[in-house]
Design a protein around this nucleic acid. Structure first.
Length: 589
DNA sequence: TAAATCTGTCATTGG
DNA sequence: CGCCAATGACAGATT
């Protein structure tokens, strides 16, 4: 009856199993390899970024030196006694050795610099490719407006000079007050910091506003916060789930693409493919009332893990399937899951006197005796055994697969159950492998007649676990085995979670790296724009300077020589004509 | 057959 | 002090 049906049902059933298993493995392998390839790629990128960062730092150091110079000047302005314009300290330009230009000027007046110096300083501070630096004029915008320029009596001040047209004066003021100019100056000073900060994702990336700079994320509100390391994990946690799909290979971890199609659920599935595929009541219930009743005890416990069914499945140690048993690796405690029937000595057999004298390692000796165990097990765990018999070769499948298949084809189970007599399939390698992995502790538990399911042992809370243990008289070896099973089981899950987190972190970092690349591109572009803007303003300033200078006349109504005089200004708009000769003299001093 | 990868396990550490 | 989760390291299995 069953045997007749078997040939019919098996092929389809096995195909289904195989497809399912292959699919899962492909997914797993794909995900793993992808992620790790990804990490390698990321390392390369990181190295490159490191080099870039060093370069940036060098540039920044240069800028900082220049800024230090500026700061020095400003410091001088503050510490250097500010003398009111009405009482200029500048003495005769030709004789005073203390009078200096440039820095000396700051020392005296604190807030006045020649245009040449300004331009030079500007050029040094904000080097531009364009040779606009040759333009002499410069405005010292850094001078506090409140300070007054100290001018020697013999130096004409043009602030109130009637020769200086009001329109030009106003032009100076307007130019000085140009927000763009200020912005440019400030921006240039700040830019190096920005870039430096940009290269430090750990700090910058956590800026809540940071994500708003990411163009791609603008239309992905749910992703915005994920740029921040503390948060992306959760999001990925959710999102990786649905990503585990046959099209996983397309999740090439090309983060831009991922981001473009970012869906949290996908990421969740990617990294938690099977987390929720555990045995659920659905398949069990669908298995019929018989199954339900058989599993009554197991079902009553919170998480009914397929491992439970599997662990008590006769298929695991049925005489018809000795092969899986041979695959059980020895435990670290010396357990040897030898499948040789003779190993289950009467004294230690499960249906024997029930002697609990053997230790964890002892249990291995009598462990997994196909025939003996089956019969023994039938007596000790009748319900479970019956249930297992119903499942038959399903025990060879991964738990989730069992449940799925059971739910889909409950009628197949009897046929499967009788399949234990058939020789093992070579294409069932994966099944056997999965079973071997899952069966270790189950087999030991069976061998030692542990009256709990492995799932219970592992997943029960401490209190419940202790309570459960107290309800049964277990010998020392049983207790040790139970503890080991619990420890190993928990650690196994922990290791899985740990590895999952690792991969999530890798993917998250890749995503963050990509975002930072975009941010860097944006900032570089902005810097370029600002530089050109600054260059343009410098040109305008130079033109204005020339215009103003050409309009100045001395007492003989002759124009000043640009080689002998230069214009200086203060932040409040006061403009002075300063002889260059003095400057050179002082400098020579 | 060798290398890469996966998986389970143990030891350790910190909460 | 014991429990537990996290994690590095290792070994065996698998691809």
């Amino acid at each position: 009856m069953m045997d007749i049906e078997l040939p019919k049902m098996h092929p389809s059933q096995q195909d289904m199993d195989l497809i399912d298993i292959l699919w899962r493995q492909d997914v797993d392998l794909g995900a793993g390899r992808e992620v790790f390839d990804f990490s390698y790629r990321q390392k390369e990128v990181e190295l490159r970024l490191l080099r870039e960062k060093e370069e940036e730092k060098r540039q920044q150091q240069q800028l900082e030196q220049e800024k230090a110079l500026l700061a020095q000047l400003q410091l001088d302005e503050e510490t250097g006694e500010f003398v009111p314009r009405s009482a200029p300290r500048m003495q005769d330009s030709a004789t005073s050795a203390q009078i200096t230009q440039n820095g000396a000027f700051a020392e005296q007046g604190g807030d006045a610099m020649s245009f040449d110096e300004c331009m030079q300083l500007l050029a040094e501070t904000f080097p531009l490719d364009e040779p606009a630096e040759s333009a002499p004029p410069c405005l010292d915008a850094s001078v506090p407006p409140s300070t007054d320029l100290m001018m020697p009596p013999d130096i004409p001040a043009f602030t109130q000079n009637p020769l200086l047209p009001g329109s030009l004066d106003q032009a100076w003021m307007e130019l000085l007050s140009l927000p763009e100019l200020q912005q440019c100056l400030n921006m240039q000073m700040q830019e190096s910091l920005d870039m430096d900060g940009f290269m430090k994702p750990s700090t910058e990336a956590q800026d809540p506003n940071y994500s708003q700079y990411l163009p791609r994320m603008d239309h992905l509100p749910s992703v915005q916060t994920e740029v921040c390391p503390p948060e992306y994990i959760n999001t990925y946690d959710q999102s990786f789930n649905t990503m585990v799909s046959p099209n996983l290979s397309q999740m090439s971890l090309n983060v831009p693409d991922v981001g473009a199609e970012f869906r949290p659920e996908e990421f969740n599935e990617l990294f938690y493919p099977d987390m929720e595929v555990k045995v659920n009541s659905g398949p069990l219930a669908s298995d019929g009332g018989n199954m339900v009743s058989q599993l009554a005890e197991i079902s009553s416990d919170p998480p009914v893990n397929p491992m439970d069914l599997h662990s008590f499945s006769p298929g695991s140690f049925s005489s018809g399937k000795p092969e899986p048993m041979a695959e059980f690796p020895d435990s670290d405690s010396g357990l040897s899951l030898d499948s040789s029937p003779h190993m289950s000595s009467p004294g230690k057999s499960l249906n024997g006197d029930g002697s609990f004298g053997f230790s964890d390692s002892d249990s291995e000796e009598m462990d997994d005796s196909p025939e003996g165990m089956e019969s023994d097990y039938t007596e000790i765990f009748p319900l479970v055994y019956l249930n297992d018999g119903a499942q038959g070769s399903l025990s060879e499948k991964p738990p989730a697969d069992q449940q799925e298949i059971k739910a889909k084809n409950p009628k197949i189970e009897p046929a499967e159950a009788s399949g234990h007599s058939k020789p093992p399939f070579t294409k069932d390698k994966q099944k056997k492998r999965a079973e071997a992995r899952l069966s270790r502790d189950e087999q030991r538990a069976k061998a030692l007649q542990i009256p709990f399911t492995v799932d219970k042992i592992i997943n029960l809370p401490v209190d419940d676990f202790n309570e459960m243990m107290s309800k049964h008289q277990l010998n020392e070896s049983q207790l040790a085995l139970v503890r080991d099973i619990r420890r190993r089981g928990k650690n196994k899950v922990a290791a899985q979670n740990c590895r999952k987190r690792k991969m999530e972190n890798i993917v998250g970092l890749e995503y963050e790296l990509d975002s930072l690349k975009e941010e860097k591109e944006r900032l570089m572009k902005e810097k370029s724009e600002r530089s050109s803007s600054l260059r343009e303003m410098k040109q305008q300033l130079s033109t204005l300077y020339q215009e103003v200078f050409s309009m100045l006349r001395d007492e003989h109504d002759k124009p000043f020589s640009s080689s002998e005089y230069s214009l200086q200004h203060t932040a409040d708009g006061t403009v002075f004509l300063v002889p260059r000769l003095k400057k050179t003299l002082v400098k020579n001093n």
